[in-house]
Design a protein around this nucleic acid. Structure first.
Lengths: 223, 223
DNA sequence: AGTATATTCCAGTGGTCGCTGGAACAGTAG
DNA sequence: CTACTGTTCCAGCGACCACTGGAATATACT
């Protein structure tokens, strides 16, 4: 007699699912985690995640529709932040559930941490062999100027600080070999960290460009 | 230079989103809530939610793929249950976020709770319907002896003078239905006053045990 | 064996989502 | 005013998702 309310009840779950849908995308989860660390502008988020600005903006609209984020305007840019502390505990809780329920999460974490054999640099001879066979691309992560003056023949120029933006151009099927100035240059290792975190297969070339040139191997110049 | 610190990012977020996708559907949230109250067979879930069996089965597959539910076979039917306690706290956390972030949830919930005036007693038919759906627990507030001799099947025994001590065992998400001896028994109204004062959702069952028994509805005895 | 019940598997279809590129819209600086 | 930057809006597309009906599978009952 009284409205036992299937429509009301499902209406509630409909609302719950709005929150669920908001965290149904890896990109949005990534954004939320960043926003839980502090407010950021749209393009700062784009740079940090390697997504296009348009895409970030759209995801932020989605998060905003679920009221999970708030925003503040400052001049021409708009800063987003997590709506409150509870949404941050919620996403960490989400991660915790994933950790305990999905065995591959632990596996991925472990793999990333002690992938020491993968951290072993590739020798120049090995790289040449792989290049002849294909399935391997070489990336120069030094600043553009250095690339222009000289680089390994066939290498692409993706400076470290632009790497995040160009991830979508990189193939997941091939091995990515990064190099920079020499054995003590930190650019390449940092690039590897980023690439591996995103699930790419990446190795470092032993030493750097000077040693490559010294070995008499093919180089090129210009852009 | 945004060279992100060597922390796991996107590969993991892909996994996190598996959990998110699982709770991106109102139907699946509804199923999870039911499964957190105890294991149920597929068609029991279908009956409780009004969905087709096929559809329920498919949603259960989805939840199973995210490892959020576990299953057990007994003869021809298969009983599903929440995988562990953590997933249940997760879905209630989801509801809590929805509650604080989405204003319409409060509005809906209010409608749902006292849609038919909170003080109005619940009819027996209505109680039966709600019990089939879950989301409702029945409490017998008479002295223990009377409970032992006969009580509504499935009811918990919490005598009025012990109610205050057992408040922490009662769920705030479910509707609590109290009953005692009959329409003029004062135990149940007093219990309601206490429960409501503490923020529980509580209603009274119309009349009392004798009328329930007279209607031929299921009762039990013992402790 | 045959029948019945509970569950899952398998297309097919309409709808929604994610991403992109291009255009529109602030707000600021010159 | 114009030029510029940061952000959002919009159309379009490919991919994925939810639900359905019908068939296949598994177990129990007689």
């Amino acid at each position: 007699m009284t409205a036992s309310p299937p429509e009301l009840r499902s209406a509630l779950h409909e609302q719950f699912a709005r929150i669920g849908k908001a965290v149904a995308s890896p990109r949005r989860i990534e954004l939320l985690e960043l926003l839980c660390q502090g407010e950021r502008s749209v393009d700062a988020l784009a740079r940090a995640t390697g997504m296009t600005v348009t895409n970030v903006s759209q995801h932020l609209q989605a998060l905003s529709a679920a009221r999970l984020v708030a925003r503040r305007r400052d001049g021409t840019r708009i800063y987003y932040r997590a709506a409150d502390e509870q949404v941050c505990t919620f996403v960490t809780e989400l991660g915790a559930v994933a950790r305990t329920r999905l065995p591959e999460v632990e596996r991925l974490a472990a793999e990333y941490i002690d992938g020491s054999d993968q951290l072993e640099p590739l020798t120049r001879a090995e790289l040449l062999r792989r290049l002849r066979r294909g399935y391997t691309i070489v990336v120069d992560v030094r600043p553009t100027e250095e690339y222009k003056s000289a680089h390994i023949k066939g290498a692409a120029s993706i400076p470290l600080d632009e790497l995040a933006r160009h991830l979508h151009e990189l193939p997941r099927t091939k091995l990515i070999v990064a190099y920079c100035r020499g054995p003590y240059c930190v650019l390449a290792p940092q690039a590897l960290a980023l690439l591996r975190a995103r699930g790419f297969r990446a190795r470092r070339l032993e030493d750097g460009l000077p040693e490559w040139r010294a070995a008499g191997l093919p180089i090129a110049a210009g852009s």
